[in-house]
């Protein structure tokens, strides 16, 4: 099947669309050395087309290089975990993710699976610097994408960290399902490392294999966590979303034991637990995109336009929290129930 995919579809990123405005940016110039670009006026000419097929585009996503206008840094949403940080913000250097998780809200949010990279990173940093003049900032830089997984293409993280090194009031969260750790991370100053939280999303290998397509296997993620933790980066473990699968307690119980065994010597800053929950409008779109997903066809309960597992949600969270508390102190475990 993989062989068929290799010959039937174009390779991922075989096509690069570049806004005229972004064409002479260093990133565009680097990427179009290998692939002739298709020059476009605005990224929405491609990204916002009608009648796109999200799941087929995931087989061969295109890259879209664009210049972002308007706001660059946004206040964190209430449904996202702030871990007690007062000045909680997020930003998106990119739209969409190279991975294909069946439960991912991006399928409901965007009509395209193509990946947009905003090349004007300096504008982001300028706005962030202004914010830092007013107060400290806790910034999540890998929402709506997986920045670490795209680093080999973009170099965004390295560029961002050069800026962050001089901004001591800035704490950054980097959320990922990737197992890659670029070598420059290990030579960062210790003080900067302490302000860069690696937030790894973890799921049982059964879930990763079945629903988190193209992501790193659990063992590789655990190995990356060990490397990052040993190098002095704060580690956040995100058990989110928990999925209601057959033999939930058995599979998640074994999984937590496996994670504990692999990371017993690594200091864990905190952990978060959340069950799968999604807005009803996103779920409708996701079911349309992935009609074969057994996960998405679950008859969810709908409370004020949020679809969830109903009473099962609390049970699932309690179970995982109890398993985790054998190892991580309860005050370090943040739960997001409905």
């Amino acid at each position: 099947m993989d062989n068929l995919k290799n010959t039937f579809y174009n390779l991922p990123f075989s096509h690069i669309y570049v806004e005229e405005e972004a064409l002479f940016s260093p990133l565009a110039q680097k990427l179009i050395k290998k692939t002739a670009p298709i020059v476009i006026h605005h990224y929405m000419d491609i990204f916002g087309r009608t009648h796109q097929n999200f799941s087929i585009q995931k087989e061969s996503p295109a890259l879209i290089l664009a210049v972002k206008h308007g706001n660059f840094i946004y206040p964190g949403a209430n449904v996202c975990q702030s871990f007690g940080n007062s000045y909680f913000y997020y930003t998106s250097f990119a739209m969409n993710c190279p991975f294909h998780c069946e439960y991912c809200y991006l399928q409901g949010m965007y009509s395209s699976a193509n990946i947009v990279l905003f090349v004007n990173t300096e504008d982001y940093l300028k706005e962030l610097a202004q914010l830092l003049c007013q107060h400290s900032v806790y910034l999540c830089i890998s929402y709506d994408t997986d920045l670490l997984a795209l680093e080999y293409l973009t170099g965004f993280l390295e560029h961002y960290l050069c800026f962050a090194a001089k901004k001591h009031k800035l704490v950054t969260e980097l959320r990922t399902k990737s197992a890659v750790l670029p070598s420059f991370l290990f030579s960062l100053p210790e003080e900067l490392k302490r302000r860069l939280i690696f937030a790894y999303t973890l799921s049982p290998q059964e879930v990763t294999e079945r629903y988190e397509h193209k992501t790193a296997p659990l063992s590789a993620r655990l190995s990356a966590i060990r490397s990052a933790g040993s190098a002095g980066f704060p580690i956040r473990l995100c058990f989110d979303p928990l999925l209601r699968i057959p033999n939930f307690e058995h599979i998640y119980g074994n999984f937590i034991s496996q994670v504990h065994a692999a990371l017993s010597n690594i200091p864990i800053q905190d952990a978060s637990i959340g069950v799968f929950r999604i807005s009803d409008s996103y779920l409708k779109q996701m079911r349309k995109n992935l009609p074969e997903s057994g996960l998405l066809q679950y008859p969810f309960e709908n409370t004020q336009h949020v679809c969830h597992y109903g009473a099962h949600s609390s049970e699932m969270i309690s179970f995982v929290k109890q398993q985790l508390s054998n190892w991580i102190p309860e005050e370090k475990i943040d739960t997001l129930d409905l």
Partner: peptide, 20 residues
């Protein structure tokens, strides 16, 4: 075709290029 430009309106559309 990777791009179709309508000379009258100047509008471009981009056929999908998924298949090899």
């Amino acid at each position: 075709l990777q791009q179709i430009i309508d000379a009258g309106s100047g509008r471009s559309v981009y056929p999908e290029l998924i298949y090899r």
